[in-house]
Computed example of a mutant assay.
Amino acid sequence: MADVKIYVTEYCGYCKMAERLLTELNIAYEEIDVTHDVEQRKALVEITGKRTVPQIFIRDEPIGGYTDLKALQDSGKLAELFPS
């Protein structure tokens, strides 16, 4: 099981950017496509309080979307969570 889960939709540009960033950093992730899954989207909103994707979880803790992931990378905190 991956330490990172990313909830995406087929048409989300920020989802693709988040996946690309994780791939470039060699961080394994599990993609969960909620494009056509209304119940899963409702559950995601209940957990995060947000309707947007991507929603990214690190070790089951919600961190937010692409901008939040990028901020973690820019601050060096992402590297601390996933040392090489």
Rank of each mutant, 00 (worst) to 15 (best):
M1C: 12
M1A: 08
A2R: 00
A2K: 00
D3V: 14
D3C: 15
V4W: 00
V4E: 01
K5L: 07
K5H: 03
I6T: 07
Y7I: 00
Y7C: 00
Y7L: 04
Y7R: 01
V8L: 04
T9Q: 09
E10G: 14
E10P: 14
E10D: 06
E10Y: 09
E10H: 14
Y11C: 14
C12D: 05
C12A: 03
C15T: 10
K16M: 05
M17K: 07
A18H: 13
A18M: 02
E19G: 12
E19K: 14
R20N: 15
R20L: 15
R20W: 15
L22S: 01
T23H: 07
L25E: 08
L25H: 11
N26S: 07
N26V: 12
I27Y: 08
I27S: 02
I27N: 09
A28H: 13
A28L: 12
A28N: 10
E30D: 13
E30Y: 00
E30C: 08
E30M: 07
E31D: 09
I32T: 10
I32G: 02
D33Y: 06
V34T: 09
V34L: 13
V34Y: 01
V34P: 00
H36S: 07
H36G: 08
H36P: 11
H36K: 08
H36E: 11
D37W: 06
D37R: 04
D37H: 02
V38N: 15
V38P: 11
V38L: 08
V38F: 09
E39H: 14
E39M: 14
E39C: 14
Q40K: 13
R41G: 01
K42V: 13
A43H: 10
A43D: 06
L44K: 04
L44I: 04
I47A: 10
I47E: 14
G49Q: 08
G49T: 13
G49R: 03
K50I: 07
K50N: 07
R51Y: 09
R51L: 15
R51W: 02
T52K: 00
T52S: 00
T52W: 04
V53D: 00
V53Q: 00
V53F: 04
V53I: 02
V53Y: 02
P54L: 03
P54E: 11
P54S: 06
Q55G: 01
Q55S: 01
Q55I: 06
I56Q: 13
I56K: 01
I56R: 02
F57G: 01
I58F: 06
I58C: 01
I58P: 04
R59L: 10
R59V: 13
D60G: 04
D60W: 04
E61C: 15
E61Q: 12
P62Y: 04
G64E: 03
G65Q: 05
G65E: 01
Y66S: 09
T67I: 11
D68Q: 03
D68R: 02
D68L: 02
K70G: 08
K70C: 13
K70N: 05
K70W: 06
K70V: 07
K70A: 10
A71Q: 05
A71I: 10
L72H: 10
D74T: 11
D74Y: 11
D74S: 12
S75G: 02
G76L: 12
K77C: 08
K77T: 12
L78Y: 04
L78H: 07
A79R: 15
A79L: 11
E80K: 13
E80Q: 10
E80C: 10
L81Y: 09
L81P: 02
L81I: 05
L81R: 11
F82C: 08
P83F: 11
S84Q: 15
S84F: 12
S84V: 09
